[in-house]
Simulated assay, not measured.
Amino acid sequence: MTETLPSRSRRALDPDGFRRALAVHAAGVVVITAQSGGVPVGLTATSFSSVSLDPPLVSFYVDRSSTTWPSLRSAGHFAVNVLASDQAELAARFARKNVDRFAEPTRWRPGPLGAPLLQDVSAHLICLPHETVYVGDHILVVGQVAEATVHGPGRPLIYHQGRFGRFIAHPEERA
């Protein structure tokens, strides 16, 4: 469905105001990893989402200017590492540029198809590329989940207002 905004609504959006508005939305944190040409690659993503149960699809967005994306794109599969609340340093490491993300203290092992699986995460999803779509200044990446393993019901790492944090559940209400 395409709608036309009234002319008064089409004025230029303030980029800083837009960023501030988006920052109030909390998001889970994952690290996407792959093996490309025998070299492990990975990046932090806060745009991860489930897409479909049948077929099992998940998605994330990557900035078009990402230097990691070309290597991820050329891989035959990728892993989604769902980070636990105590893994903020790991998330920050995979978000940095010009650092060996897989060097110590990062702990990982090759997965069943070769993609690096990070240690101590809440879950691993092994995905086959399904679709990529260029959307604005990002690329939507959709993967078909071939294998899913939950390692524990731990608390998730959250990204909110430019910082990593922890989820705290509300006490259960009793009737």
Rank of each mutant, 00 (worst) to 15 (best):
L118E: 12
L57G: 01
V39K: 07
D86Q: 05
S59E: 10
V58C: 06
S66C: 08
I158P: 09
H170I: 06
Q87I: 08
P70D: 06
P171K: 07
D54F: 06
P112A: 13
G38C: 02
P105H: 04
E131I: 04
S47K: 08
L117W: 07
D14V: 04
V142N: 07
V80N: 02
L118C: 12
V82M: 09
Y61L: 13
P40R: 13
R101T: 00
T68V: 08
G165A: 11
R8M: 11
H25I: 11
V135C: 12
S49E: 00
P110V: 11
L57I: 03
P112K: 12
D120R: 05
K97F: 00
P156N: 12
I139A: 08
R101V: 00
A95T: 12
P6I: 00
R20P: 01
L118G: 04
L90P: 03
L83M: 09
R96D: 03
F167P: 05
G154P: 02
S122A: 08
A27R: 07
L140F: 07
S85K: 03
R107K: 13
G111Q: 09
A79S: 09
S74L: 01
Q87N: 04
V31D: 02
P56C: 01
L57T: 02
A91T: 08
V80G: 03
L118Q: 05
Q119P: 00
V80A: 03
L43F: 12
A88R: 06
E104M: 09
P70G: 07
G28P: 01
G152S: 09
T149I: 01
A103L: 07
R174C: 10
